[in-house]
Design a protein around this nucleic acid. Structure first.
Length: 627
RNA sequence: GGCGGUGUAGCUCAGCUGGUUAGAGCAGCGGAAUCAUAAUCCGCGUGUCCGGGGUUCGAGUCCCUGCACCGCUACCA
């Protein structure tokens, strides 16, 4: 597929009344990742985001706050700008619908369409419910009342301006059908086509100032402002110079992607295309609607309370890992689940274990054995060639996936390659090899490091901060910092220092938390009697191999011999325990601890760093009951 | 109600135009290893591929039907 040299991508402009939540953050990060990919590929890129500032809700919120709407917007817009800064968003412009140039162009477009008869005025009467701020048809009313508020609506006669949207219905259906990439994913395309099976009406694009003042005034009737969506959608072209700078406009338009959430499909796939058609500009290449993040099985929404604030996530886990998770976890177009649990699993297994740990082992081996100097690659064996081959084809594979918006697959492809380097290390064992054949060990480490560099570079658009840190440590020629060419890593030069990039997230022990939360709880004698405590004699004791804390005890309970694993190796040498009487929980469910079955639990007393085993005052022999 | 979609291992999902013993990651179990963030590597899955019919030499993959869930839209064709 031939790529254009220009890449223009947009997010919706967010309604300024909301505070940024994961929904906004996701779309914006997605756009950012795509924009960065294209920039790094060499495409000239323009990435637009911004806010929608007009409309009823803003007006009302300002009234409540006792300030004018513009001041209110100025205050609110900061939340978005700050959030995007924190999320490392690299938008090229941030549009506000109150920007002077935008308002001016919107008015010009309105005038233009009006002059050409594509906007007409029409007076009609209707039942208007003040609560809903909308008209109802008689059919929609229940017993003559608004079904929402159960109040009788007012009948008002009103003149309004309409955009002849209906005229474009057949054209739009045809266009969507002949341009399969126009609306994606396919399911949304079907949805729109389904919507278009119904007769499309004309779109009311005016609001009388009596009801709404905060908007862009109609140039041909100062008693009205324009409908927010008509105003908002035009941001995609006003921001790149439409009717201001034709050259700039033509450079970027048509857009490659309008990214949207699935909640605004109709406005973007029906209203906007018909508007563009009427205005006489070509259609954007693709309008892509992504799904929702579900939190605990509930839809994320502005009106619900279960909002995971992106800024909170970042504070706990870092921007880059959150960006990684969002891109990695969601199959674009579908809904995905979010929870801290899922996040931690993904983070630990892919970022900490697979990727971060690989970085550590390579860097440490080069530091210890080659004094941090990147070794030379000498004789390439079969295994080396495999890695090199894969490293060479990886960038193209990944770029293709990204061009098709298969971002999660793209990331997975990179991770699979990273895993293959771990396998390669295991196979070639440079930590042994270095003792017998240092040059060969060098070859292995170079191969691993260079493969890692290429993989990391591909992840840069997703995790700009961490990957930059990583890449800075890898010596390359200055003009080749971003090269996917195999061999860019310079032998003979020093590797920089690297911190642990993705420290493993250690989970709090849930049980401990539960106990803390419960506080002091009184139990009955029955509860206590459920625990069968008996004395036992230690017959043998030994350390569990390869552990620091565990002892394996063989004990006599009077009736039988049992094996118990206890975490007391730091307090007792095994020998001293033999022959001692201990107290055990005898009816505990057996568990395997480090592969060794434990059939009970020793009682100990613990204070600070000290620990002592419990025993009996007099010895009654093993198997005595404790109550 | 109409239109569209989904239903595959404990969990999240992949399986293109029908074709060898249905796959991946995570979790779990066993082992190897110790360069590394107790990370890594190897091995281990008898799953009614939602149910029921059918087409076919052959169906998770096509057709019909039933059920469950989701999305859009709506009581109008």
């Amino acid at each position: 597929m031939a790529e254009s040299n220009y890449f223009y991508i947009t997010t919706p402009i967010y309604y300024v009344n909301d505070k940024p939540h994961i929904g906004h953050a996701y779309t914006t990060i997605l756009a950012d990742v795509l924009a960065r990919f294209h920039r790094e590929k060499g495409d000239e890129t323009f990435f637009l985001t911004g806010v929608d500032e007009h409309g009823q809700k803003v007006q009302q919120a300002a009234e409540r706050a006792g300030i004018d709407p513009q001041t209110h917007c100025n205050k609110m817009v900061v939340y978005f700008k700050k959030a995007w800064e924190k999320l490392e968003i690299t938008n090229d412009f941030f549009i506000r619908t109150t920007d002077g140039f935008h308002e001016k162009v919107v008015q010009e477009v309105l005038q233009d369409l009006y002059d050409k008869g594509k906007i007409y005025e029409h007076e009609y009467g209707g039942y208007y419910c003040v609560g809903c701020e909308r008209f109802y048809t008689t059919k929609e009313l229940v017993d003559g009342k608004c079904p929402q508020h159960l109040k009788e609506p007012e009948y008002i006669k009103e003149k309004n301006y309409f955009f002849r949207m209906s005229k474009y219905q057949d054209w739009l259906i045809e266009y969507i059908k002949t341009h399969p990439e126009f609306i994606q994913p396919k399911s949304r395309k079907n949805e729109v086509l389904g919507f278009l099976k119904n007769k499309l009406g004309d779109l009311c694009i005016s609001r009388p100032k009596l009801r709404l003042k905060w908007g862009i005034e109609l140039p041909f009737d100062s008693n009205y402002v324009t409908y927010v969506w008509f105003d908002a959608l035009l941001n995609y072209i006003t921001a790149i110079g439409y009717k201001q700078d034709e050259e700039r406009f033509n450079k970027w338009w048509p857009a490659n992607y309008h990214l949207i959430g699935k909640d605004i499909v109709t406005t973007h796939c029906v209203y906007w295309p018909t508007m563009m058609r009427a205005i006489g500009i070509p259609m954007p290449k693709t309008i892509f609607a992504h799904g929702w993040w579900m939190v605990d099985e509930t839809k994320m929404s502005k009106s619900l309370k279960n909002i995971v604030k992106p800024l909170d996530l970042i504070d706990s886990y870092g921007v880059d890992s959150v960006r990684y998770f969002l891109i990695r976890e969601m199959t674009l177009g579908q809904d995905s689940n979010f929870s801290e649990d899922i996040f931690i699993k993904r983070y630990n297994s892919e970022l900490a274990n697979d990727f971060g740990n690989l970085v550590s082992r390579i860097v440490t081996l080069i530091r210890k054995n080659f004094n941090s100097v990147v070794p030379k690659i000498l004789i390439k064996g079969k295994e080396e060639l495999k890695i090199i081959d894969n490293a060479k084809t990886l960038p193209e594979k990944v770029h293709n996936l990204i061009d098709n918006l298969h971002l999660n697959d793209a990331v997975e492809t990179i991770i699979i390659f990273i895993r293959s380097i771990n396998k390669y290390m295991e196979l070639r064992q440079p930590w042994h090899l270095v003792k017998q054949n240092k040059q060969e060990a060098g070859t292995v480490l170079y191969t691993a490091a260079e493969g890692l560099r290429i993989a990391a570079l591909l992840l840069h658009p997703i995790m700009p901060e961490k990957i930059s840190t990583l890449l800075k440590a890898f010596p390359t020629a200055d003009n080749q910092k971003n090269s996917f060419e195999w061999g860019t890593l310079k032998s003979g030069e020093k590797l920089g220092e690297l911190p642990i990039l993705f420290p493993r997230i250690i989970r709090k022990i849930e049980i401990m938390k539960e106990v803390e939360n419960k506080g002091e709880e009184l139990i009955s004698i029955d509860d206590f009697s459920k625990v069968k405590l008996i004395t036992a004699k230690v017959l043998a004791a030994e350390r569990v191999p390869k552990t620091d804390k565990l002892l394996k005890l063989s004990i006599d309970t009077g009736e039988e011999k049992r094996q118990i694993v206890a975490g007391i190796a730091q307090y007792y040498n095994p020998e001293v325990l033999i022959g001692k009487t201990v107290i055990i929980v005898a009816n505990l469910q057996p568990v395997k601890i480090r592969g060794t079955e434990s059939q009970g639990m020793l009682l100990t007393a613990e204070k600070g760093e000290n620990l002592t085993l419990l025993t009996t005052f007099d010895d009654l022999g093993p198997g005595s009951f404790i109550s």
